[in-house]
Design a protein around this nucleic acid. Structure first.
Length: 525
RNA sequence: GGCGGGGUAGCUCAGAGGUUAGAGCAGUCGCUUCAUAAGCGACGGGUCGCCGGUUCAAUUCCGGCCCCCGCUACCA
């Protein structure tokens, strides 16, 4: 019996006090590509997402709207999932931290950390605003005043429970040292290391007092669990921590936590320490992706400007999907924004990338190959059973090329993976057609023309396999337009690395209208 | 302030001590018509942020300066 490798990954869980935007979507997309790729490669994948609901902001937002916090959270969760579904994000579970199961498991965890002696009672002193009824950080203050109520804050201390984060400094540094890939990309890793080395880690207050909304602390019910301590636990409560040890043991430790670069500290320092304190293993990798700006920056004036230009719909993911497609949305961000770094979204660029690469390059290549094949050969390559296709890209070693793309995908360099597929493979295929002109050749040497098309169709097969994690629907449409022997659900990257003979004559299996397929990516603009 | 990253063609970026500094996109001009007015080919003379230094030679090495960005503990 063979052991299927498993792959457990998560995205950050989102605050549901506003709808998801293109930035939050960017994170899910990058994670989704990885999940889809790993599934293709035979991993037993579990992909966890969720919403972070036990925060004061959420209960405030709910009361502003005259709703109960729970009803508000459930509705927002529905809205988030609607967006993720529209974008074809292939998550396996969606955790809401306000749900009882999560709360029970979180309590079990904090109790364990407490029993292990890593939580102690103390008092937190800070700047308190009476209006907000909450503490303010130094950074938030504006000349000693509360930024919301514009009046002085007061020094106040109140009892709380601390987590002994400081006890884990050396162990964390050792872990980073022994696991150089733990924090990706490297720039984030360097930041965290220098942070711990230079400033050290302080114990952290992990409770809040007198909040009605949140998870009560089992050993001191007057308190609730601070949102971050609670939120991070989603990653384990979602796979059975606390009530399903078998499932938990199957998937933990996580292979990758996909997060925004701004919250690496919580994931790279606090989170492993929490797990150690509870006797569990730390995650294997944390990937801090970049941000997406809108035409350089985003701001209120920008929103107004976009409205004036009639483009404000581009701020709403659902609208982009509705007007174009999920595939167009996915492709733009994955192609144009480097996942490890920051990217930019602009309407002009969106159309350029879409038209140039999806419509003109890939879509048109598909279209022209289908049409000539249909016109000249009735969609069937007679007598090609057992024929091994020839390479159409001069100087390209297919196995090496696929290995390069694979390397980019595994390192989350999605933009480079797509760049390679388009520039090093699809464009040369168009050049091959141009050079051999089967539409002319068919008049003089039909067999030769057939051979050229037969070879070129292999590029569609290879490209669709490589593109499967990125644009799953279009890739499937391309692949299943022919009778390639391996079922779509079973294709692997390795299948793209070789040109093999077919067990039967290659032919078009797609439904055509007037000998043409409907445009895969209709041009826009 | 400290630590880190960066300033290269209109845009996004790659690059390396040394013949004419590269790619994609956009733009211009041809060819073509199988195809989604798609495809293919040609055309880029850009002080490689500024000022010095090392060197036979620097955009690539060193120093200084200017500008941008990230982190600097509880905000996505």
């Amino acid at each position: 019996m063979t052991d299927t490798p498993r792959w457990f990954q998560t995205t950050a869980i989102d605050y549901p006090n506003s709808r998801p935007h293109i930035g939050t979507a960017f994170e899910k997309l990058g994670a989704d590509v990885q999940a889809r790729y790993r599934r293709m490669e035979g991993y037993d994948v579990f992909f966890l997402m969720g919403n972070d609901e036990n925060t004061v902001k959420v209960s405030k937002r709910a009361s502003e709207l005259g709703q109960e916090p729970q009803a508000y959270c459930d509705d927002m969760a529905r809205q988030f999932r609607e967006v993720w579904d529209a974008l074809d994000i292939s998550y396996d579970t969606f955790v809401q931290t306000s749900h009882e199961r999560h709360k029970q498991c979180a309590r079990a965890f904090i109790q364990k950390v407490h029993d292990a002696g890593y939580i102690y009672k103390g008092s937190y002193e800070g700047w308190y605003c009476d209006g907000c009824e909450s503490f303010k950080t130094e950074k938030e203050l504006e000349g000693g005043n509360c930024p919301i109520h514009k009046r002085p804050v007061i020094r106040r201390s109140e009892p709380c429970h601390f987590f002994k984060l400081s006890a884990f400094s050396d162990r964390l540094l050792a872990y980073y040292d022994e696991n150089p890939d733990f924090i990706q990309p490297e720039s984030r890793r360097n930041e965290i290391i220098s942070l711990i080395k230079n400033d050290g880690l302080l114990d952290v207050n992990i409770t809040r007092r007198g909040e009605a909304w949140g998870i009560s602390v089992p050993f001191d019910p007057e308190f609730t669990i601070w949102v971050w301590f609670d939120a991070l636990l989603t990653y384990i409560t979602g796979i059975g921590y606390g009530d399903d040890r078998a499932t938990f043991d199957k998937y933990w430790p996580a292979d990758t936590h996909f997060i925004g670069k701004d919250i690496t500290r919580f994931h790279c320092a606090l989170w492993p320490a929490m797990l150690w304190a509870a006797g569990e293993q730390p995650p294997k990798k944390v990937f801090g992706h970049g941000f997406v700006n809108f035409e350089g920056k985003i701001g209120k004036s920008r929103t107004e400007e976009l409205k004036a230009r009639g483009l404000d719909y581009l701020l709403e993911p659902m609208e982009i999907v509705r007007r174009f497609s999920a595939e167009a949305f996915r492709y733009y961000f994955l192609r144009e924004c480097p996942y490890p770094g920051d990217g930019d979204f602009s309407p002009d660029r969106f159309m350029e990338v879409y038209n140039s690469e999806l419509a003109n390059n890939l879509g048109n290549l598909f279209s022209r190959e289908m049409t000539i094949t249909w016109k000249s050969f009735g969609g069937v390559f007679d007598g090609t059973t057992g024929t091994i296709p020839e390479s159409v890209v001069p100087g390209l070693d297919l196995a090496t090329f696929v290995a390069d793309v694979r390397g980019h995908v595994e390192a989350c360099r999605y933009n480079l993976a797509l760049q390679a597929i388009v520039q090093d493979f699809l464009t040369p295929t168009n050049q091959y057609l141009e050079k051999n002109a089967p539409w002319k050749l068919v008049k003089t040497d039909k067999a030769a023309a057939k051979r050229v098309l037969f070879n070129a169709v292999q590029s569609l097969r290879v490209a669709s396999i490589l593109l499967k994690p990125f644009i799953p629907r279009s890739a499937e449409t391309i692949y299943t337009s022919f009778n390639f022997p391996t079922p779509w659900a079973e294709v692997k990257y390795a299948d793209a690395a070789v040109l093999k003979a077919l067990p039967e004559d290659l032919r078009i299996t797609a439904e055509l209208l007037d000998g043409k397929p409907p445009p895969l990516f209709p041009r826009i603009g």
